[in-house]
Structure formats: C-alpha cells, structure tokens
C-alpha cells in the first residue's frame, strides 16, 4: 500500500502542476543583518535581547569564569550538575556541586530530572534575536542534558561565537547535527496571549559572555 500511495501522491502533484508556469529563482532583496558590523555593538545587542526575554546575562573574563560559575550555581542552590563531554575542566574548578559526567553511561531521564543544573558551551549566539544555538559539539552534550535540569548556564565566547543576525548564523551551522536554538527560558503565551516564563524547559537561563 505504501509504495502505491507514494506513486499516487506524486502522480497527483504532477497532474496538478501541468499548467503551472515555471517559477523564477526567488529574489533575496532583504538585509543580511540589521546591525552594524561592530563587535561591541553586537555584544551589547545580544546582552540586551537575551535580557529582554528574561535570561540572566553576565560578562566576565576567562580567568574569572570559574568563580562566576560557582557563584551562579550557589545562587540557585544547585547541588548537582550535569557535565557534557568536552566541557573545559577549569570552568568547574571552583564549584563544590556534585558533578554527573554524561559520558560512558548516559544519565536517564529520571536522573536528569533530579539533577539541579547543567553547564555548557554553545555553537553560536545571534545578537538580533537574543538566541544561543547548541549543536551537540564539545561542551554542549546531547539535547536532553540542557532540557530536563531546571537551571542552564551557557557560556558564550565573545571573540568568535557571536554573529549579528539569523542570515549570518545559518551558513556557520551544520544541518546534519541536531540543533537547539534557545531564546530565553521556556515560556508560554497560551493563557490569554500573555507571556509567562517557565514551563517545561529550564526555568532559569544564565548566559555568561566571556570577553577578552
């Protein structure tokens, strides 16, 4: 039956398009970015837009990062953290929270549910939309890691991980890798179209921008 349906659907499409004129290549007269190509401006915009959708945004240096991560985990009372493979060990050198490394044996969904926080790097951040993108690369882990624990601390490297716009982001991302684009903590507009932060994903998102 399946093979038959495939032929039927494709046949109907070809029949339906008998009179359709050939379409030209789509015009792309829109802008590549809406922001000046200036690192400081782009960083400020990322900061502003992330904060606008209720992410907590911090700026620090590579040297001060471990202390800041420890402080943020403490602030939220996180005693256990999930650690993705490839996360720089130094980032967690000052926290006393218990670390679950998601390496050889993967944490089950229930184990993740009792884990308070997760610390990751990212693939990319997009300033205009206030978005961080994870693609499962080193220090990011599989998708469930950044989904089930209630606090996500994400570290963004200012020097080479921030782009201005969505059109600038896509060519730098590999579509064959599973991706999660995150713009603020989880939210809903389902009750009277009012925005409420905090539903199923992490209710707290802390983004740490590491500058030179």
């Amino acid at each position: 039956m399946k093979q038959n349906s495939r032929a039927r659907v494709l046949g109907r499409i070809r029949q339906a398009l008998l009179d359709a004129p050939p379409s030209p290549e789509p015009a792309r007269d829109y802008l590549t970015a809406h922001t000046a190509d200036d690192e400081a401006v782009i960083l400020d915009l990322l900061h502003e837009n992330l904060a606008d959708y209720r992410a907590n945004v911090h700026r620090t240096t590579e040297t001060d990062l471990p202390a800041l991560v420890a402080k943020l985990l403490d602030r939220h009372g996180a005693q256990t953290i999930a650690v993705p493979p490839g996360l720089p060990i130094a980032w967690l050198s000052e926290t006393t929270a218990r670390q679950h490394h998601d390496a050889d044996s993967l944490l089950t969904p229930h184990e993740l549910d009792t884990t308070h926080a997760v610390v990751t790097s990212c693939a990319l951040a997009i300033a205009e939309t206030g978005t961080i993108v994870l693609d499962g690369g080193p220090g990011q882990g599989r998708r469930a890691l950044t989904l089930v624990p209630d606090l996500h601390i994400c570290v963004v490297r200012a020097k080479d991980q921030v782009v201005g716009s969505v059109p600038q982001a896509l060519p730098r991302l590999d579509p064959t890798r599973p991706q999660t684009w995150i713009s603020g903590p989880s939210a809903t507009s389902d009750i009277e179209l009012d925005r409420v932060e905090g539903v199923h994903g992490p209710r707290r998102l802390d983004v740490v921008i590491v500058t030179r």
Partner: peptide, 24 residues
C-alpha cells in the same frame, strides 16, 4: 516568530536530520 507570537525569536527551535547516535 514575529508574525505568530510577536517575538524576535520563539524560545525554542529544534532541528534534526534523521537519527543521531547517542542523542534523541
């Protein structure tokens, strides 16, 4: 996102291509 929920970007967008070992 701007047309539907009036956001610059919706909180989560997931993309996947077939299956990935050890993820999902």
């Amino acid at each position: 996102p701007r047309s539907s929920t009036a956001e610059r970007m919706n909180p989560y967008t997931s993309t996947w291509t077939g299956t990935t070992d050890g993820d999902g």
